[in-house]
Each structure stands twice: as C-alpha cells, then as structure tokens.
Design a binder for these strands. Structure first.
Length: 585
DNA sequence: GCCGTTTTCGGCCCGACTGTTTTCAGTCG
C-alpha cells in the first residue's frame, strides 16, 4: 500500500517531535518540520517524485531526509523511527497535543512520573501530582486539566471550514469597530486572509494609537466565551464554538509590517526575514531595522515592506512558502484570476432535479450578475435522492428552455446534465443522449469509499468518454464532514491533460474541490479549470468568490480558467471536442 | 539537518504573554 504525502509528512513531523523531546539541536528539529511541511504542500505525489529520483529537489529535503523517505516508500517502515520509539514511547509525543504542553513539559511528565498518554496526564493532574514537577506550579496543573478538555472539544470539531470562519470573523471585526473608539484601520489577517480552505484560529489586526480601550472592547464582545490571555498589544479569546481569536493592536504608522507579519504564513515570513537579513535588514511586525545602524524604517502599507526588499507585492493567497518569494524576485509572479474575470457558470441546478428555483428564476439571477453564459446541469436519473432526470425529463427541460432563452437574448443558455458516474464505472445516460447536450458534467456521488484503483478508474472512465466536458468536484470531500475519496488525483490530472477535459473547482465552501494544491498541479500541466458554484438557488451564486480564491491559491491566471473565456471561444472548445469525438467514430 | 547574490562551513526569523522564576524558560504563532 503506497504512502500518501500526508503520511510521509506525518512521519517526519513525529521524528521532529521526538527529537525535540529528547532535547536535540533545535535546528535539526526545525529541519524535520520544514521537510514535513514541504512534503505536505507538494503538488505532486511523493511516490512519483521518488520514482523519478528527485526527492532532493524538494525544498528542505537533503541527503538525510531523502534517504529516510526512500526507506519509508520502499518498505513502508523506517528503522530510525523505530529506534527513536525505543527511546521515547509514542504516547509521550501525544502529550504535545495538549495546548501549552511543549517538549519540555512532556519530557518532565514522562521522565518523572512515567506518563505516556493524555489520559494518564489527566489522572496525574486530578491527583495533584503535576504541580510538584520542576517548572510546573498550581496554575500550570489547573491549566493542563482545562486544556485537556479543550483538546477533546477540538478533536471533535477540528479545523473550521472557511465558509463558517469567514462570516464569524467579519461579524467580530464589525462588532469591534462599532464598540471600540479610535480604530484607524482594521483587517482580518492570518490564514483567513490567505483564504486557506480551513482555519485554525481567527486573526484580527487593528491600527490605533490607544490600544487599551480596543482590548477592553474586544474582551467584552458578546461572542466571547473565555479570555485566554490579554496584554497591551495582544489579546486572545475563545468563542462559544471553541474557535480561538487573536487580536493585535499596533500604531498606524507600522500597519504595513504588522499586516505583513500577521498574515503569514509562518514559512513565508521566515523566508522573507531571511531575505531581509541578507540585505542588511531585520524584519519584525514593527519595522525594518538596519542590522548595522539599528535605524528603523517604518512601513505604513504592505507594498512598502515588499518594495523595500526589492520585491513586488505578493498576494496573500500565494504566501505559503511554495516558491512565491523566488518567483517574486525573478518578477515571475502570475497575474492571478479575479472575480471580475468570471463570465459564466457551467454547473447549476433547477427544480428539474434538486434545485429550489425554476429555470427562469435561475437565469434571471445569472443575468443580474452580468453573466454571458449559464448552463443548467441537473442531476441524472440514477441519483434518486435528488430527483434526477430521466431522458424524457431532460427533453421536457429542453423544450422549456427554448422558451426561457427568448427572454435572455444577451445571455447564452446552455443545457447539459450532471451525469452520475455509477459505481460500476459507466455513465448514467447513453452516449446518444450525451451527444445532444451542450455541456456534460460528470460526477461521482455514490460509493465514495471504493478502493483507490476502483474509484480512480471510475474517474478515468469519465475523462475518457469523449462526450464528457467537465469532471465535477473530483475528490468528493466535504470539509468537516467527509474525507476525500481515495481517488488518485495526480493520475486524474494527467489524464485530463491528455483528453482535454476541464476539471472543476467547486466553489461551494463545504467542497472547494479541487483543492488549491491539486488545482496548481492542473495549472502546471495546462489543464483548464472551471470555477462553478453548483448553485441550487440564486443565493448560492455568491459562493463564487470562494472558488476564485482557490484558483488564486493555485497560481491560476484568467487564461487557466475556462469560464473566463469569451462565449465564442468557450463554445468553440466544446464543439471541437464534439467534432473530435465524431472523427474518432 | 539544510543551505548559499558575502558562505561547502557556520550560520539558521522574531516577538508576546504567562508562570515560576529572582532574570528567564516555555509555549505559541
């Protein structure tokens, strides 16, 4: 059974954890963490990179890590890790999951009290045995007990999907601005500003010359369940939902460095600060400071920070330490697709299946958004729960659409279907019917848990059917609810590059599928992406921004996104595929 | 353990807050 990038990264992280508990050189520890993060965000399957003998081209992976990854992928095991496990039991590493328990406290609990699990730590805290350890006290003991509760809550909820986090953050910021005096600027920062698909905690940034009243107002917001810590420049609270929110307040004149610092990612900031050092600057959230004279250079805007280092401003969506600083230095940052570039939708539903609105209502909503084209793709027949269309239903819809089109002369209205790729791998309509459609969107909704070979083969069958134009939500994940299927997305993307099939970025904030990492691979291989909201009502069309942001995180320009194309070019592409099909016979 | 527009050796981002400390270590981001 091949290991995934996530699993390899997990092993490297575990080595880093154990070495840190052992008190190893911290730079060695950081090397394992860096390697893990790099493997985790790799846009290719690590097995492919390994087979090509290119492990050492991964940033942060040198001779030692590549040898360990090689052993891991060859044998599924790692002798070095087994040796480490003999020295430090795996249960000790699990103690690090408790908030505010780091390597030092974990080691003390293990060496002095023989604690090797969160449960044993809880027992010891209740029995009052922790506070006698060196570096511990009564408060630490009580906190550990409370934090174990927090851990259990968090393990249930996990990271928060951005579709929940963003509205909550916007409400908090608006509430703070209404309640606190003297706020000159305010922004959401952190992974939210970078539009990561899930959010660990919320980061708010405020510019004010009088921080204390801002902090006081923040602590008193109605959403606050618990104040975790509060100082003159930083306050952290927890919401009733369990989500943690950090607020930083800084002087307006330092807004640029503050926003840059607080947006992250951590890896991006490390690389940027290393670059600054090479140019004689120390960079922190307050200023750039000359390493020679100590003289400060203040940046009121983020652009100033980057330009002082000889760089163009880097969009937050790219700041993941995935090569964006090198690209910026070479002036090779892509011109990212924007919301305004989108000219239409190719995946939407009506009352002909599980949509909530009529054809005319949906078309009117699309026109109100200024769309040049709009495709109805209701579910196919086998998807009973959605009221999927029989071939006769589809023809009835075609007749109704002929009338609806007359009311929208300036918008191209297409008719297709979201055709189920059945568990056996065949499509839900005969080819003759598919051939009549303007656009065919194939999708997997049932038997998600098939083994890798089988579910991958289903996707490939769809891609290789000459009538299929788009593969929808390829991984099938539902954030916070369902893991992605085992489908081999690298293979899917490669085959899509051969067949010319368009891959969807589903913009519904629960899906965001393709994700940013795989979408970037698609961009690299020249596979066109389509950003679809999969709307079941006019309100769903508002989700478009989430999908555009995934594409931006994937380094996609407008040219990479199918539904930024002019209607004529889009139709030409769809027809040429149809013609190629006819030629194939 | 990784890496190089000063380096193949000698560095490695930077600061806030808390608790248990008599001046700082630990943890977090």
């Amino acid at each position: 059974m091949a290991m995934t990038n996530q699993q390899v990264a997990g092993v490297l992280d575990e080595i880093g954890d154990i070495l840190e508990i052992q008190g190893e050189n911290r730079f060695r520890v950081v090397s394992y963490r860096r390697g893990a993060e790099s493997v985790r965000s790799l846009q290719r399957d690590i097995n492919q990179v390994w087979q090509a003998g290119e492990l050492e081209t991964i940033p942060g992976v040198g001779e030692a890590l590549s040898k360990k990854i090689d052993e891991l992928l060859r044998t599924g095991q790692l002798g070095y890790l087994e040796k480490l496990h003999e020295q430090v039991p795996p249960g000790v590493v699990s103690l690090l999951q408790i908030p505010e328990v780091g390597p030092s406290k974990a080691r003390a609990m293990w060496e002095r009290l023989g604690i090797t699990s969160v449960e044993e730590a809880e027992e010891a805290a209740r029995a009052g045995r922790l506070h006698e350890l060196p570096g511990f006290g009564a408060k630490t003991e009580a906190k550990i007990l409370a934090n174990i509760e927090t851990l259990r809550r968090r393990q249930k909820s996990g990271r928060t999907p951005i579709g929940e986090a963003l509205p909550a953050a916007r409400a908090l910021l608006a509430g703070l601005q209404a309640a606190a005096p003297g706020i000159e600027r305010a922004a959401l920062a952190g992974s939210l500003r970078r539009w990561r698909d899930t959010i660990g905690d919320l980061d708010l940034l405020v510019a004010s010359t009088a921080p204390e009243p801002v902090m006081a107002a923040f602590r008193s917001l109605p959403q606050v369940a618990e104040v975790l810590l509060s100082g003159p420049t930083k306050t952290s609270i927890r919401l009733g939902s369990g989500l943690q929110v950090d607020l930083r307040v800084l002087e307006p004149a330092r807004w640029g460095t503050a926003l840059q610092y607080f947006t992250g990612s951590q890896q991006h900031n490390i690389e940027l600060r290393e670059l600054a050092l090479r140019q004689g600057w120390s960079l922190n959230e307050y200023a750039l400071s000359s390493t020679k004279s100590g003289e400060e250079r203040l940046c009121a805007n983020e652009e100033d920070v980057y330009s002082a280092l000889g760089l163009p401003w880097i969009p937050p969506e790219l700041r993941e330490g995935r090569g964006e600083i090198a690209a910026a230095r070479q002036k090779k940052l892509p011109a990212l697709v924007t919301l305004a570039d989108i000219k239409g939708e190719l995946h939407a539903h009506s009352t002909y299946s599980d949509g909530r609105n009529s054809l005319a209502e949906m078309a009117a909503a699309a026109r109100a958004r200024g769309y040049r084209y709009f495709a109805f793709t209701d579910h196919s027949q086998s998807l009973g729960v959605t009221g999927g269309m029989s071939p006769d239903d589809w023809r009835a819809q075609r007749d109704e659409l002929a009338k609806v089109r007359a009311d929208f002369p300036d918008m191209l209205i297409l008719q297709g279907a979201e055709v189920e790729v059945r568990a056996g791998g065949t499509l839900d309509y005969p080819d003759e019917l598919l051939a009549e459609m303007d656009v065919v969107v194939a999708a997997v909704h049932v038997s998600h848990r098939q083994p890798r070979e089988q579910i991958t083969q289903r996707a490939l069958n769809a891609l290789r059917n000459p009538h299929v134009d788009v593969l929808a939500h390829p991984s099938g994940r539902l954030l916070g609810r369902r893991e992605p299927s085992e489908v081999d997305l690298d293979r899917v993307i490669e085959v899509a590059a051969e067949t010319g099939t368009v891959l969807e970025i589903n913009a519904h904030p629960v899906r965001l599928d393709l994700d940013d990492v795989h979408a970037r691979r698609a961009v690299e291989l020249g596979v066109p992406l389509v950003i679809n909201t999969d709307s079941h009502s006019p309100a769903d069309m508002e989700y478009l921004e989430y999908g555009v942001e995934v594409a931006r995180r994937a380094w996609a320009g407008a040219g990479n996104v199918f539904n930024t194309w002019e209607p004529e070019r889009l139709l030409e592409y769809l027809r040429r595929r149809g013609k190629a099909q006819a030629d194939q016979g």
